[in-house]
Write a protein that binds this DNA or RNA. Structure first.
Lengths: 193, 193
DNA sequence: TCTTTGCCGAGACTGATAGTATCGACAAAT
DNA sequence: ATTTGTCGATACTATCAGTCTCGGCAAAGA
C-alpha cells in the first residue's frame, strides 16, 4: 500500500505556466477592481486554460492568495540595524508602503477570505508570519527598555497591523511612510512622558 | 417643470416589509456564512419578493449595510460617567462585545464593500460616525491629562478599531471584553511610566 | 363607490461567474 | 514506441445579481 509507487513519469509541470498565472492574477488584482477579476479573466490574461488553473489550485482564492504571497516575498523589509527605534520605523515604513502599492491585491484577498475557507486559512498563515516578525522586533525593543515595560506585544502587533488593514479596507486615510513614521514615534516616545 | 406636482397618492410603503427584509438579512448574515447569503435567500426568509428588495435598495450591499446600521443603532454604548479611564473601558468593552456577537454581519459587509461602491460608501459613513465618537472620548482624555500629551487621537482611533476589525476579519484572536479591558488599560497606564 | 396611483408577490429572464467534464494534442521519461 | 501526465479548447452545470412583466390589491381622492 505504498502511497506513490511510481515517483513521477510523463510530462512535468511547466513552471512558466504557474508563474504566468500568479503574475497575471496579481497584476489584475492590483490594476483592476476586485470584482473584475474572475478565473476566466486570469486564464485569458495568462494565456492559459481555466482547466489548468483548477488542476493546481483548489479555488480562485487559493490562486489569489499564492499570488499575494509571491509578491510579498519579493520585498522583505530591510535587516535590523540594532537600533530599535530605527528598525521599527524602517519596518513599518517598508511594510506600509508596500501594502499601499498592492492595496488592491490585499483588499481582494481579504474579501475572498470571507467566503473561501482555503483563502481564509492561507491568509491566516501569511498574516501569522508577518505578525511573528513584528512581534520579535517589539520584544527586542521591550527588552531594551525602548517600550513601556507593561507593553503587551500581542496587543501592539494587532494595533499596528490592524491600523494598516483598517485603513486599506475602509480607505478613509492613507497608508504611507508618513503614517508609519508617526506611528513608530508615538510608540517609542511614550516612555519619556 | 415642477419636479413633483402630486405629492404621493396610491398605496404607501409597508414598513413591516422593510423591517422584515432588514431583520432577516442581518439574521442570515449572523447565522450563516457570508457566501450563503444571497438576495434570493433574503427574499425567501423574509417572505418577500426579490423585486421589492430592488425597489427600495440599489444593491445587495446596500441592504446588508442598512441592516447592519439598524442593528448597531439598537445598542449604543453607555453614557459617560466623567471618569475617563472608566468611560474608555466601558466604551471599548461594549463595542467589542457587540462587534463579536455580530461578527458575521460585519465581515460580510466588509467583504461586500470591497466590490460594491454603494456598500463601501455606506460603510465609510458608518465607520466615520463610530470613529468620531471614540475620537471625542480620546480628546477628552487627552485634555484631562489621562493620555500622553503627544498622543495623536486619529492614529489611536485607527489603532483601536483597526485591532478590532483585524481580529474579526482574520480570526486569529478573540474580540471580547477581556481584550477591551487590556487594551484600555495599556493606553492609560503609559503616563505612569 | 369608483378611479387612479403605486406597493407587492410570483416568477421568468439575462448575463456573469465558479467550478467540472471531455477531448485531443503534445511533451517527457522509460 | 509507449506510457504518463500536462495543457488548451470548449462545452457544461449551478448559482447568483439584477431586470422585467404581470396581476392583485391597498390607499387616497373625487
Amino acid at each position: 500500500m505504498s502511497p506513490e509507487p511510481r515517483p513521477h513519469t510523463g510530462r512535468r509541470r511547466n513552471p512558466a505556466v504557474r508563474q504566468a498565472i500568479l503574475d497575471h492574477a496579481a497584476d489584475l488584482l492590483i490594476a483592476h477592481d476586485y470584482a473584475a477579476v474572475s478565473t476566466d479573466a486570469i486564464a485569458r490574461a495568462a494565456g492559459v486554460s481555466k482547466h489548468t488553473i483548477y488542476r493546481w489550485w483548489p479555488s480562485k482564492g487559493a490562486v489569489l492568495l499564492e499570488a499575494m504571497a509571491e509578491r510579498a516575498r519579493q520585498q522583505t523589509p530591510g535587516l535590523n540595524t540594532g537600533v530599535f527605534a530605527e528598525d521599527l520605523e524602517t519596518f513599518l515604513a517598508a511594510t506600509f508602503r508596500t501594502a499601499d502599492r498592492v492595496s488592491g491585491l490585499l483588499r481582494g484577498i481579504m474579501a475572498e477570505a470571507q467566503r473561501d475557507p482555503v483563502a481564509a486559512e492561507g491568509l491566516r498563515q501569511f498574516v501569522t508570519g508577518r505578525r511573528d516578525e513584528l512581534h520579535a522586533l517589539l520584544t527586542r525593543g521591550l527588552e531594551q527598555g525602548e517600550l513601556p515595560p507593561d507593553t503587551d506585544p500581542d496587543l501592539l502587533v494587532d494595533q499596528i497591523f490592524g491600523l494598516m488593514w483598517y485603513r486599506l479596507l475602509i480607505g478613509h486615510a492613507p497608508v504611507d511612510g508618513d503614517v508609519a513614521t508617526r506611528l513608530a514615534r508615538s510608540l517609542i516616545h511614550r516612555q519619556e512622558g
